[in-house]
Amino acid sequence: MSYTIIDTCTGCGACVRICPTRAITGKKKDVHRVDGNLCIECGACGRICPSAAVKDQFGHVCVMIKRSQWKRPAFAGDICMSCSMCIDACPVHCLDLSEAKGAKDPHGYPWLKDEKACIGCGFCEAECPVGAVTMVVPVPKEEPRKSRPAAETAR
């Protein structure tokens, strides 16, 4: 099974740029298509498509989500067993193993090294046997107090 593109596609190419397996092809402004042999059902095309033109493997049309609201992995260090299954599962290689903390805990742990590359597919969460990875919508970081905090609240 794979994702498919329907004819509401405007050929903007957003999905082509985000697809981690280069499964999507098509001319600009033409309806694109997904190569079922390459598609890994990560869903990135569906989340990024502005014209609701992507159907998932069950035939549901995907809803666009603002990229800053895509879920990202959060790691529970106390449960994690450093097996690196999540790192291997990531199709965009945005996870990496950390340095060891010291002699007391000499193991490396996974962390989101390249936040911008993360496509929110959740494969890391799905492949972790012990439930140490959870996909969460990122909370905006507490920014250092700037000169005009009012602007922040207005947004």
Partner: peptide, 17 residues
Amino acid sequence: NEFIKYHCYSCPLGCGG
């Protein structure tokens, strides 16, 4: 001399280093 444990893929044990 070991500065980090080395785990093979899917290994919770980490006998390497």
